[in-house]
Design a protein around this nucleic acid. Structure first.
Lengths: 138, 138
DNA sequence: CTTGACCTTCCCATGGGGTCAAGGTCGATT
DNA sequence: AATCGACCTTGACCCCATGGGAAGGTCAAG
Protein backbone atom coordinates (compact mmCIF):
# COMPACT_ATOMS: atom_id res chain seq x y z
CA UNK A 1 0.00 0.00 0.00
CA UNK A 2 1.32 3.41 -1.00
CA UNK A 3 1.44 6.44 1.24
CA UNK A 4 -1.73 7.98 -0.14
CA UNK A 5 -3.81 4.93 0.73
CA UNK A 6 -2.14 4.68 4.13
CA UNK A 7 -2.99 8.33 4.72
CA UNK A 8 -6.63 7.80 3.85
CA UNK A 9 -6.95 4.75 6.05
CA UNK A 10 -5.22 6.32 9.03
CA UNK A 11 -6.68 9.80 8.82
CA UNK A 12 -3.23 11.34 8.73
CA UNK A 13 -1.91 13.28 5.75
CA UNK A 14 0.85 11.87 3.57
CA UNK A 15 2.87 14.89 4.53
CA UNK A 16 2.58 14.08 8.21
CA UNK A 17 3.49 10.43 7.70
CA UNK A 18 6.69 11.44 5.95
CA UNK A 19 7.37 13.97 8.68
CA UNK A 20 6.86 11.42 11.44
CA UNK A 21 9.29 9.16 9.68
CA UNK A 22 11.82 11.96 9.29
CA UNK A 23 11.81 12.77 13.00
CA UNK A 24 12.14 9.13 13.97
CA UNK A 25 8.64 8.68 15.34
CA UNK A 26 8.12 5.98 12.72
CA UNK A 27 10.63 3.47 11.51
CA UNK A 28 11.56 4.10 7.87
CA UNK A 29 8.93 2.49 5.66
CA UNK A 30 9.99 -0.21 3.25
CA UNK A 31 10.26 0.90 -0.36
CA UNK A 32 9.15 -0.36 -3.74
CA UNK A 33 11.65 -0.72 -6.58
CA UNK A 34 10.83 2.78 -7.70
CA UNK A 35 11.31 4.25 -4.22
CA UNK A 36 7.66 4.53 -3.16
CA UNK A 37 6.99 3.97 0.52
CA UNK A 38 5.06 0.77 1.22
CA UNK A 39 2.81 0.19 4.23
CA UNK A 40 1.58 -3.08 5.70
CA UNK A 41 -1.46 -3.66 7.87
CA UNK A 42 0.79 -3.54 10.91
CA UNK A 43 2.02 -0.15 9.77
CA UNK A 44 -1.55 1.02 9.39
CA UNK A 45 -2.18 -0.05 12.95
CA UNK A 46 0.71 2.06 14.15
CA UNK A 47 -0.44 5.04 12.11
CA UNK A 48 -3.91 4.72 13.61
CA UNK A 49 -2.36 4.59 17.07
CA UNK A 50 -0.53 7.83 16.38
CA UNK A 51 -3.64 9.47 14.95
CA UNK A 52 -5.66 8.51 17.98
CA UNK A 53 -2.99 9.77 20.36
CA UNK A 54 -2.72 13.08 18.54
CA UNK A 55 -6.50 13.42 18.59
CA UNK A 56 -6.32 13.00 22.34
CA UNK A 57 -3.98 15.95 22.42
CA UNK A 58 -0.68 14.23 23.12
CA UNK A 59 2.36 15.99 21.70
CA UNK A 60 4.52 14.12 19.24
CA UNK A 61 7.07 13.64 21.98
CA UNK A 62 4.43 12.08 24.19
CA UNK A 63 3.19 9.97 21.30
CA UNK A 64 6.74 8.67 20.97
CA UNK A 65 6.72 7.56 24.59
CA UNK A 66 3.30 5.98 24.19
CA UNK A 67 4.49 4.11 21.11
CA UNK A 68 7.46 2.79 23.04
CA UNK A 69 5.23 1.68 25.88
CA UNK A 70 2.82 0.16 23.41
CA UNK A 71 5.52 -1.85 21.74
CA UNK A 72 7.11 -2.91 25.01
CA UNK A 73 5.43 -6.07 26.18
CA UNK A 74 6.91 -5.65 29.62
CA UNK A 75 5.59 -2.13 30.00
CA UNK A 76 4.15 -1.17 33.33
CA UNK A 77 0.68 0.24 32.98
CA UNK A 78 1.58 2.69 35.73
CA UNK A 79 3.93 4.37 33.28
CA UNK A 80 1.15 4.90 30.81
CA UNK A 81 -1.15 6.07 33.55
CA UNK A 82 1.43 8.59 34.73
CA UNK A 83 1.81 9.95 31.23
CA UNK A 84 -1.94 10.25 30.84
CA UNK A 85 -2.30 11.93 34.23
CA UNK A 86 0.39 14.40 33.36
CA UNK A 87 -1.48 15.21 30.19
CA UNK A 88 -4.73 15.60 32.09
CA UNK A 89 -3.04 18.07 34.43
CA UNK A 90 -1.79 20.10 31.50
CA UNK A 91 -5.26 20.08 29.96
CA UNK A 92 -6.82 21.19 33.23
CA UNK A 93 -4.41 24.06 33.55
CA UNK A 94 -5.13 25.18 30.02
CA UNK A 95 -8.87 24.92 30.61
CA UNK A 96 -8.59 27.00 33.76
CA UNK A 97 -6.63 29.68 31.96
CA UNK A 98 -8.98 29.86 29.01
CA UNK A 99 -12.04 29.91 31.26
CA UNK A 100 -10.62 32.78 33.25
CA UNK A 101 -9.92 34.73 30.07
CA UNK A 102 -13.40 34.04 28.78
CA UNK A 103 -15.02 35.17 32.03
CA UNK A 104 -13.05 38.39 32.01
CA UNK A 105 -14.02 39.09 28.42
CA UNK A 106 -17.60 38.16 29.17
CA UNK A 107 -17.70 40.70 31.99
CA UNK A 108 -16.34 43.34 29.67
CA UNK A 109 -18.79 42.51 26.92
CA UNK A 110 -21.71 42.67 29.30
CA UNK A 111 -20.71 46.17 30.28
CA UNK A 112 -20.36 47.32 26.70
CA UNK A 113 -23.44 48.91 25.25
CA UNK A 114 -22.59 47.81 21.75
CA UNK A 115 -24.30 50.72 20.07
CA UNK A 116 -22.69 53.27 17.84
CA UNK A 117 -21.42 55.57 20.51
CA UNK A 118 -17.68 55.39 20.87
CA UNK A 119 -17.62 54.93 24.63
CA UNK A 120 -16.52 51.34 25.10
CA UNK A 121 -15.58 49.72 28.41
CA UNK A 122 -13.70 46.98 26.63
CA UNK A 123 -11.24 49.43 25.15
CA UNK A 124 -11.22 51.29 28.45
CA UNK A 125 -10.16 48.13 30.18
CA UNK A 126 -7.52 47.30 27.63
CA UNK A 127 -6.29 50.85 27.93
CA UNK A 128 -5.87 50.95 31.69
CA UNK A 129 -2.58 49.48 32.67
CA UNK A 130 -3.37 50.45 36.23
CA UNK A 131 -6.20 47.96 36.71
CA UNK A 132 -4.55 44.65 36.02
CA UNK A 133 -6.36 42.93 38.86
CA UNK A 134 -9.27 41.91 36.67
CA UNK A 135 -7.68 39.19 34.65
CA UNK A 136 -4.47 37.89 36.10
CA UNK A 137 -4.93 34.59 34.37
CA UNK A 138 -1.97 34.92 32.08
CA UNK B 1 13.27 56.19 27.05
CA UNK B 2 15.17 53.28 25.48
CA UNK B 3 13.66 49.96 24.53
CA UNK B 4 14.85 48.19 27.67
CA UNK B 5 13.03 50.60 29.93
CA UNK B 6 9.96 50.50 27.71
CA UNK B 7 10.04 46.72 27.92
CA UNK B 8 10.20 46.75 31.70
CA UNK B 9 7.38 49.24 32.02
CA UNK B 10 5.10 47.49 29.57
CA UNK B 11 5.83 43.91 30.56
CA UNK B 12 6.76 43.03 26.98
CA UNK B 13 10.25 41.91 26.00
CA UNK B 14 12.48 44.20 23.97
CA UNK B 15 12.52 41.51 21.36
CA UNK B 16 8.75 41.50 21.10
CA UNK B 17 8.57 45.26 20.83
CA UNK B 18 10.96 45.16 17.87
CA UNK B 19 8.96 42.30 16.40
CA UNK B 20 5.67 44.17 16.72
CA UNK B 21 7.28 47.10 14.98
CA UNK B 22 8.64 44.87 12.21
CA UNK B 23 5.22 43.42 11.43
CA UNK B 24 3.60 46.83 11.40
CA UNK B 25 1.63 46.44 14.59
CA UNK B 26 3.51 49.43 15.97
CA UNK B 27 4.56 52.52 14.09
CA UNK B 28 8.35 52.71 13.79
CA UNK B 29 9.72 54.23 16.96
CA UNK B 30 11.66 57.47 16.73
CA UNK B 31 15.40 57.10 17.01
CA UNK B 32 18.21 58.78 18.90
CA UNK B 33 21.27 60.08 17.04
CA UNK B 34 22.95 56.75 17.61
CA UNK B 35 19.98 54.80 16.28
CA UNK B 36 18.45 53.69 19.57
CA UNK B 37 14.67 53.43 19.62
CA UNK B 38 13.03 56.06 21.79
CA UNK B 39 9.67 55.69 23.51
CA UNK B 40 7.38 58.37 24.87
CA UNK B 41 4.70 58.01 27.51
CA UNK B 42 2.15 57.72 24.74
CA UNK B 43 4.14 54.85 23.29
CA UNK B 44 4.21 53.17 26.69
CA UNK B 45 0.47 53.47 26.78
CA UNK B 46 0.20 51.71 23.46
CA UNK B 47 2.61 48.99 24.54
CA UNK B 48 0.58 48.40 27.69
CA UNK B 49 -2.56 48.19 25.56
CA UNK B 50 -0.94 45.51 23.44
CA UNK B 51 0.31 43.62 26.48
CA UNK B 52 -3.12 43.64 28.03
CA UNK B 53 -4.77 42.50 24.82
CA UNK B 54 -2.29 39.65 24.41
CA UNK B 55 -2.87 38.65 28.03
CA UNK B 56 -6.55 38.42 27.22
CA UNK B 57 -5.67 35.95 24.51
CA UNK B 58 -6.21 38.07 21.42
CA UNK B 59 -4.02 37.15 18.47
CA UNK B 60 -1.68 39.76 17.07
CA UNK B 61 -4.05 40.22 14.17
CA UNK B 62 -6.90 40.88 16.57
CA UNK B 63 -4.71 43.19 18.60
CA UNK B 64 -4.12 45.15 15.41
CA UNK B 65 -7.84 45.58 14.93
CA UNK B 66 -8.29 46.59 18.55
CA UNK B 67 -5.51 49.14 18.22
CA UNK B 68 -7.18 50.63 15.19
CA UNK B 69 -10.49 50.81 16.99
CA UNK B 70 -8.79 52.29 20.02
CA UNK B 71 -7.14 54.99 17.99
CA UNK B 72 -10.28 55.75 16.01
CA UNK B 73 -12.27 58.31 17.90
CA UNK B 74 -15.29 57.61 15.77
CA UNK B 75 -15.20 53.92 16.49
CA UNK B 76 -18.44 52.18 17.20
CA UNK B 77 -18.32 50.25 20.43
CA UNK B 78 -20.38 47.59 18.69
CA UNK B 79 -17.34 46.79 16.56
CA UNK B 80 -15.24 46.17 19.63
CA UNK B 81 -18.01 44.19 21.21
CA UNK B 82 -18.29 42.02 18.12
CA UNK B 83 -14.58 41.34 18.14
CA UNK B 84 -14.69 40.42 21.81
CA UNK B 85 -17.71 38.18 21.30
CA UNK B 86 -15.97 36.43 18.46
CA UNK B 87 -13.01 35.84 20.70
CA UNK B 88 -15.25 34.54 23.47
CA UNK B 89 -16.78 32.08 21.03
CA UNK B 90 -13.35 30.84 20.01
CA UNK B 91 -12.38 30.46 23.65
CA UNK B 92 -15.55 28.55 24.39
CA UNK B 93 -14.94 26.19 21.53
CA UNK B 94 -11.40 25.55 22.67
CA UNK B 95 -12.57 25.00 26.24
CA UNK B 96 -15.18 22.52 25.05
CA UNK B 97 -12.63 20.60 23.04
CA UNK B 98 -10.08 20.45 25.81
CA UNK B 99 -12.70 19.44 28.35
CA UNK B 100 -13.87 16.63 26.14
CA UNK B 101 -10.31 15.39 25.72
CA UNK B 102 -9.71 15.60 29.44
CA UNK B 103 -12.88 13.66 30.23
CA UNK B 104 -11.96 10.95 27.77
CA UNK B 105 -8.51 10.64 29.25
CA UNK B 106 -9.93 10.73 32.75
CA UNK B 107 -12.20 7.80 31.91
CA UNK B 108 -9.27 5.89 30.57
CA UNK B 109 -7.09 6.64 33.57
CA UNK B 110 -9.81 5.53 35.95
CA UNK B 111 -9.97 2.20 34.20
CA UNK B 112 -6.23 1.71 34.33
CA UNK B 113 -5.00 -0.23 37.32
CA UNK B 114 -1.69 1.58 37.33
CA UNK B 115 0.22 -1.31 38.79
CA UNK B 116 3.11 -3.11 37.21
CA UNK B 117 1.11 -5.50 35.14
CA UNK B 118 1.29 -4.69 31.45
CA UNK B 119 -2.43 -4.82 30.78
CA UNK B 120 -3.38 -1.20 30.20
CA UNK B 121 -6.76 0.04 28.96
CA UNK B 122 -5.26 3.33 27.91
CA UNK B 123 -3.00 1.66 25.40
CA UNK B 124 -5.85 -0.64 24.47
CA UNK B 125 -7.96 2.36 23.64
CA UNK B 126 -5.23 4.08 21.66
CA UNK B 127 -4.70 0.83 19.84
CA UNK B 128 -8.25 0.27 18.73
CA UNK B 129 -8.96 2.20 15.59
CA UNK B 130 -12.36 0.58 15.55
CA UNK B 131 -13.72 2.38 18.62
CA UNK B 132 -13.40 6.00 17.69
CA UNK B 133 -16.76 6.89 19.19
CA UNK B 134 -15.30 7.63 22.60
CA UNK B 135 -13.61 10.92 21.91
CA UNK B 136 -14.72 12.58 18.76
CA UNK B 137 -13.79 15.95 20.09
CA UNK B 138 -11.06 16.60 17.59
C1' DC C 1 2.42 8.38 -26.50
C1' DT C 2 0.09 11.21 -23.66
C1' DT C 3 -2.43 12.40 -19.73
C1' DG C 4 -3.19 12.76 -15.07
C1' DA C 5 -2.77 10.86 -10.64
C1' DC C 6 0.42 9.62 -7.66
C1' DC C 7 5.02 9.59 -5.61
C1' DT C 8 9.80 11.62 -4.30
C1' DT C 9 12.79 15.29 -1.99
C1' DC C 10 13.49 19.95 -0.86
C1' DC C 11 12.49 24.55 0.62
C1' DC C 12 9.46 28.13 2.69
C1' DA C 13 5.61 29.77 5.67
C1' DT C 14 2.83 30.04 9.78
C1' DG C 15 2.61 32.30 15.46
C1' DG C 16 4.73 33.99 19.09
C1' DG C 17 8.20 33.95 20.70
C1' DG C 18 13.53 32.35 22.77
C1' DT C 19 18.46 32.46 22.33
C1' DC C 20 22.78 33.68 20.66
C1' DA C 21 26.34 36.28 17.98
C1' DA C 22 28.89 40.26 16.33
C1' DG C 23 29.30 44.74 16.75
C1' DG C 24 28.03 49.86 18.18
C1' DT C 25 27.05 53.20 22.28
C1' DC C 26 26.63 54.84 26.74
C1' DG C 27 27.92 56.26 31.53
C1' DA C 28 30.93 55.55 35.23
C1' DT C 29 35.21 54.32 37.22
C1' DT C 30 40.11 53.93 37.18
C1' DA D 1 42.17 58.72 28.13
C1' DA D 2 41.23 53.98 28.56
C1' DT D 3 38.42 50.44 30.02
C1' DC D 4 34.47 47.97 31.73
C1' DG D 5 29.83 46.45 31.98
C1' DA D 6 25.34 47.37 30.64
C1' DC D 7 22.72 48.45 27.06
C1' DC D 8 21.47 48.78 22.14
C1' DT D 9 21.42 47.29 17.00
C1' DT D 10 20.50 43.75 13.30
C1' DG D 11 20.45 39.17 11.93
C1' DA D 12 20.17 34.32 12.09
C1' DC D 13 18.51 30.13 13.70
C1' DC D 14 15.55 27.22 17.13
C1' DC D 15 10.91 25.38 18.84
C1' DC D 16 6.01 22.78 17.48
C1' DA D 17 3.19 20.53 13.96
C1' DT D 18 1.73 21.27 9.75
C1' DG D 19 0.47 23.18 5.03
C1' DG D 20 1.87 24.64 0.46
C1' DG D 21 4.28 24.26 -3.52
C1' DA D 22 8.16 23.46 -6.88
C1' DA D 23 10.65 20.23 -9.75
C1' DG D 24 10.96 15.90 -11.21
C1' DG D 25 10.17 10.49 -11.28
C1' DT D 26 6.55 6.55 -11.83
C1' DC D 27 2.49 4.24 -13.02
C1' DA D 28 -1.80 2.76 -15.26
C1' DA D 29 -5.38 3.81 -18.43
C1' DG D 30 -6.90 5.60 -22.80
Amino acid sequence: MNIGQAAKHSGLSAKMIRYYESIGLLKPASRSDSGYRLYSNDDLHTLAFIKRSRDLGFSLEEVGKLLTLWQDRQRASSDVKALARQHIDALNQKITELTSLRDTLQDLVENCQGDHRPDCPILKDLESACCLNRAKAL
